[in-house]
Amino acid sequence: MAELVLRVRLIGGERLDVTYDTGDGLDETVDRVIAALAEDNGVLRCRHGDRLVVLYGRGIATLEVAPRGAVL
């Protein structure tokens, strides 16, 4: 199971760290995240603490990907 930390910078300039879980390996998970957010109507279900967060690809300016752990 791959769990990634995604540091998302939104178009408005705000930053948000979320986690994304999947049963695939790390490379497949990164490819899935990029493919989903690259679509015109792409969405990604993530977690921010105990909350479910839905990211819409249209509102994201940049995305940093790291294995589970602190993003430095």
Rank of each mutant, 00 (worst) to 15 (best):
I60K: 05
D31S: 14
E3S: 15
C46I: 08
C46P: 01
V33N: 05
L72I: 14
T29A: 13
G57T: 13
V53M: 10
T22Y: 03
R68G: 03
R47G: 02
G59W: 00
A61L: 03
R7K: 15
A70D: 06
M1H: 09
N41T: 10
L37Y: 13
G25D: 15
M1T: 12
G25V: 13
L63Q: 07
T19G: 01
E14L: 05
V18L: 02
H48Y: 10
E28S: 15
H48D: 13
G25N: 15
D24P: 00
V54G: 01
L72H: 14
G13R: 10
T19Y: 03
V5K: 05
R58K: 09
V65P: 03
L55F: 06
R32G: 04
C46Q: 02
V30T: 12
V33S: 05
L55T: 06
V33T: 12
V71G: 05
G23A: 04
D50W: 04
V65H: 07
A66I: 05
A2Y: 07
G59S: 10
R51K: 08
V43F: 05
V53I: 09
R51N: 10
V30W: 07
L55E: 09
N41A: 08
D31Y: 11
V65Q: 08
G69L: 02
R58I: 04
R51T: 04
V53E: 13
H48P: 00
N41S: 09
G12M: 04
T29I: 02
R7T: 14
E39R: 14
L10K: 12
V71T: 08
V71W: 13
R58S: 09
V5P: 01
R9K: 14
L10N: 10
V71Q: 14
I11G: 02
G25F: 06
T29E: 07
G59M: 01
G13Y: 11
V8P: 01
R45T: 15
A2R: 06
D31Q: 15
D50T: 05
V53H: 12
E28K: 14
V65D: 08
D21A: 11
R47T: 02
L16D: 12
V5I: 10
L10H: 12
G42I: 04
E28N: 12
T22C: 01
A2F: 07
L4T: 14
L44Q: 05
M1A: 09
C46T: 15
A36T: 11
A2M: 08
R51C: 01
R68C: 05
R15V: 09
D40V: 00
G13W: 11
Y20M: 04
D50C: 01
R15F: 04
L37S: 06
L26M: 06
H48E: 14
A66D: 11
D40N: 03
R51S: 07
D31I: 10
G42W: 00
A36E: 15
D50A: 03
V43Y: 08
R15A: 01
L44S: 04
E14T: 15
L37A: 06
T29L: 00
E64Q: 09
R9I: 06
L6F: 07
N41W: 02
D50F: 00
R15L: 00
I34K: 04
L6N: 12
L16I: 12
D27T: 15
D27K: 13
D40K: 06
R58Y: 03
V18R: 07
